[in-house]
Design a protein around this nucleic acid. Structure first.
Lengths: 110, 110
DNA sequence: TCGATATTTCCCGAATTATGGATATGCCAA
DNA sequence: TTGGCATATCCATAATTCGGGAAATATCGA
């Protein structure tokens, strides 16, 4: 994870439709969801959703896998982990004190 | 932390200038920096910077404190912590399995 | 009060982004 | 091969965002 990558991830999640899609995929878990199912559940047009899925995918936050006619999307927890780890490491690298309590509270599930 | 709040935070950090400012403030730590110092260090126009500072502040990621003529800005680690905790809790609430490894790796500092 | 400094607010033009209709592509079943 | 389904791409429009010039506000020293 580097700055452009983190930027892409934050930018991807900083949009209502995309954050909603990502949350849905995380909560859905390993089974993932077909694009059409996402569109139905969130009441989005397929083409608009497709654009958002592409942005989330290129940010490394979700992954796609074709299954027959449909394309199934999965949350990439590794992407989220990388983003958080980068914030903790890179941002706090010069100031570990600020991050110690942050780490503690996160591990206590805040 | 709720969805609109998280959205504001992600949106605030998903912009190059703002992510740079935030990183600078986190790395600077408790002393904080005056707006003018930030502008000088990052070579930004004062008015443009002011807008970005306002967005970061309203997202709860930084705080301001007037000191004489200048206004000193500080990273709000609590805001960052809240954002991360929300992602872990709210997103993963319906799917704790996905978050367990994520938590583990974060606490190992990735 | 006056002038200087620090920052914000107002405002505009340029650039970017979001949305969705129309169309194209990939895939499967008959 | 044909038809239909699932999704993506192309394209245009509307909305939003970004950067910065100009002016306003707040503070301090003389």
């Amino acid at each position: 994870m580097d700055m452009p990558n983190a930027l892409a991830a934050f930018d991807a999640l900083g949009q209502p439709s995309r954050l909603t899609v990502f949350r849905l995929l995380v909560q859905t878990g390993g089974a993932g969801l077909a694009a059409g199912d996402i569109a139905t559940r969130l009441d989005m047009k397929p083409n608009t959703l497709s654009t958002h899925l592409g942005i989330l995918e290129s940010a490394g936050l979700i992954a796609a896998q074709r299954q027959g006619r449909s394309i199934r999307y999965f949350a990439q927890m590794e992407g989220l982990r990388g983003l958080m780890a980068w914030m903790l490491q890179d941002c706090c690298g010069g100031n570990p004190d600020a991050c110690a309590p942050l780490l503690d509270m996160i591990t206590q599930k805040g």
